[in-house]
């Protein structure tokens, strides 16, 4: 860990100006990812700007029937929020599937979105990694890649995004509110994270200095939603694959749905092809399988993670089965 200066942000605009004007500056929120990376020498800032004191710690209703979640709202508070539990169960479940109770008490909404990959080569500065050290090569492609991408990867990077929450947010059509040097703008969560292409060092489309101030949830398509995470321990483990699904079920048919997959790509993977198959369909094992197969047709697994295709199919089918057979809508 190299020495750094620490400053507490007084106001949002000042924080943005400070970080945007200093190439070596980073924001500090919950710290659960940044402090980890400081110790590993993966992050080497010379200035840390603490944004936890900024007034982004509320969950508030929006005029359109949706919800605005402040960027510094802690994961545990968001998961326990009564409106989130009632109307956005997929979000509450995704948050609770992530990390541990202690980490959820620290981690923030904005920080969770911006957490970086768990690829072990990214975290180990003695190995090559294009994300950490552009141009050095990817150690995972011919190395240990059990947890890595099966969709949307590139010859330069096969890492996956580790957030559970972000997968749910994509399935909820959420947008992030970003304050930058040139003012505020909204970005759909689905467009926030990038596929790696030839710039795996860039996880998102944000510019240096951009500050996430809130996440906006539109009124939910349906309160019938669920998050299913498949992992190698029963808890406190990153996803092998995960599924976030929201389904509007009426008259025995899937009127509309939103599906996103986690653990399969460099970003939360919006499953448009699966949605297209499901839309207007009559729920059945065959329909679910067709939907999953449509989405996974383009999967390009690595030598040691081919199982993820079958696992993602199984997880998606199981999630849809549960979602369409349980209680009332």
């Amino acid at each position: 860990m190299i020495p750094f200066d620490y400053r507490r942000a007084e106001n949002p605009a000042g924080a943005v100006a400070t970080v945007a004007g200093a190439p070596g500056a980073v924001y500090l929120a919950g710290g659960t990812n940044l402090v980890d990376h400081l110790k590993l020498d993966v992050a080497r800032p010379d200035l840390v700007v603490d944004v936890t004191g900024l007034p982004f710690d509320r969950v508030e209703p929006r005029a359109d029937g949706g919800l605005r979640v402040g960027a510094t709202v802690r994961n545990s508070d968001l998961a326990a929020h009564p409106v989130v539990r009632e109307r956005y169960p997929v979000l509450s479940q995704a948050l609770l599937a992530g990390a541990s109770g202690q980490l959820r008490n620290m981690a923030t909404t904005g920080g969770n979105l911006l957490q970086r990959t768990r690829c072990p080569y990214f975290q180990d500065v003695t190995t090559a990694c294009n994300k950490r050290d552009p141009g050095s090569g990817c150690s995972a492609i011919e190395g240990y890649h059990r947890y890595h991408a099966i969709l949307g990867a590139s010859p330069d990077c096969v890492a996956v995004h580790p957030s559970d929450m972000a997968v749910a947010l994509v399935a909820l059509d959420a947008t992030v509110r970003v304050l930058g040097r040139h003012g505020e703008r909204d970005i759909p969560v689905d467009a926030l994270h990038r596929l790696p292409g030839d710039r795996p060092d860039r996880d998102t489309i944000l510019e240096h200095g951009d500050l996430i101030t809130a996440v906006d949830l539109p009124a939910p398509l349906s309160v019938r939603s669920a998050y299913r995470k498949v992992r190698e321990r029963s808890s406190f483990a990153f996803a092998l694959v995960s599924v976030a699904a929201v389904a509007d079920l009426r008259d025995g048919r899937v009127q509309d749905c939103r599906i996103a997959l986690g653990g399969v790509a460099h970003k939360p993977w919006r499953a448009h092809a699966a949605e297209d198959v499901l839309r207007a369909g009559e729920p059945s094992e065959q329909l679910f399988t067709r939907a999953a197969d449509a989405e996974l047709a383009g999967a390009k697994p690595l030598p040691d993670n081919g199982f993820k295709v079958a696992m993602a199919r199984g997880a998606l089918v199981a999630t849809l089965r549960g979602l369409t057979t349980e209680g009332t809508a």
Binding site: P120, T126, T127, G143, Y144, R233, S234, F236, A237
Partner: peptide
């Protein structure tokens, strides 16, 4: 413990990646 034979080290060298049973297991 997963050895990366190109480098000769254990890749999953921490408690997030080297899984030991949790209370939930």
């Amino acid at each position: 413990s997963v050895m990366d034979h190109r480098y000769g080290h254990v890749v999953n060298h921490d408690l997030a990646e080297y899984h030991i049973a949790t209370c939930a297991d």
